[in-house]
């Protein structure tokens, strides 16, 4: 009885402190959904940071070499490919030293394939979060791609070190490199978020993606130059966003000649991929907790 009384007394003094800005949330299944809610994503930016940080921490935990792995992998791949394709097969590298040429393709490609791969499985592997807490679900694949950024930065550092080792200097157009990295991130995000959403419903995607990426590697000018492809096929070929991106990265870092039609097509296809990916994601987002 006494407790009841004290509770009432407490209730009188409720909330004397002024309320801060009140967030009003409306839950309504018929409400219009935006393609992407940037203000909301911004509010949850720290969750992106911590999830990416978690993935990064866990990735190299209990390894002896740690982040060195991010260097070792492209370095070994570069050496092997240089021996086979550069020396034995003698593939043209548009005038640049073949090791630099192939590294210029490997660094962006590794980022793209890892980002798409880890984004695809991200919702399913974080299903505990999807089922138990609310934040914009887009955060999960986005933090998966963010966790791949460090490897890419290490990769580019390696590329520039190799460039200096070969006695050259980056051309002035290297200033455009961030722009192409951004386009690449956009295409990876578009593809990754779409696949992550589809993977929630059809786990087949989880099996399909790794080996599809291996096939796409051959449809991307990583070990060979893009101008090896006949003129007639180039527009179709460039629908693969990584075609133009790899070419553009080579142009900006090595100064090799670039086919701007191919690059433009790839940039447009990247942006289309981003919009389509976000649309697929936001359309299926609400059903995730019921399906996962």
């Amino acid at each position: 009885m006494g407790r009841q009384g004290s509770r009432d007394a407490i209730k009188v003094s409720v909330r004397t402190d002024p309320l801060p800005v009140i967030v009003e949330t409306v839950i309504d299944p018929s409400r219009k959904r935006r393609l992407i809610d940037l203000p909301e994503l911004w509010r949850y930016r720290e969750v992106v940071f911590f999830l990416a940080w978690r993935d990064f921490k866990v990735k190299y935990r209990q390894t002896y070499l740690g982040v060195l792995w991010a260097m070792l992998q492209p370095l070994v791949a570069m050496s092997v490919l240089s021996v086979f394709f550069g020396r034995l097969v003698g593939i043209s590298s548009n005038g640049a030293p073949y090791p630099l040429f192939v590294l210029c393709g490997l660094v962006p490609w590794n980022f793209f394939s890892r980002a798409v791969g880890s984004m695809t499985g991200s919702l399913v592997s974080n299903q505990e979060l999807v089922k138990r807490v609310y934040f914009p679900r887009l955060i999960i694949p986005i933090s998966a791609i963010a966790a791949c950024l460090t490897d890419m930065i290490v990769g580019f550092a390696l590329l520039f070190a190799a460039l200096l080792a070969f006695g050259s200097w980056p051309a002035p157009q290297v200033l455009f490199l961030p722009l192409f990295v951004l386009v690449m991130a956009a295409s990876a995000t578009g593809l990754g978020v779409a696949l992550s959403a589809i993977n929630v419903r059809f786990r087949d995607v989880g099996y399909l993606v790794p080996f599809s990426l291996q096939i796409v590697l051959f449809m991307t000018p990583v070990v060979y130059p893009g101008n090896l492809v006949p003129h007639f096929w180039r527009p179709l070929y460039s629908l693969n966003p990584m075609v133009g991106i790899v070419e553009a990265v080579r142009w900006s870092v090595l100064g090799t000649p670039a086919d701007w039609v191919m690059i433009s097509i790839s940039i447009l296809s990247s942006l289309a991929l981003l919009v389509a990916g976000l649309a697929i994601f936001s359309k299926s987002e609400r059903a995730f907790p019921d399906l996962i």
Binding site: L19, I22, V23, E24, T25, V26, I27, D28, P29, S30, V130, K131, R132, V133, Y134, R286, A287, P289, D290
Partner: peptide, 17 residues
């Protein structure tokens, strides 16, 4: 539903704060 983890099939909820 209130925690926005699952989406209601129909209906509406407004949360202030």
């Amino acid at each position: 539903i209130l925690a926005q983890i699952v989406e209601p099939t129909s209906g509406r909820a407004t949360i202030r704060g």
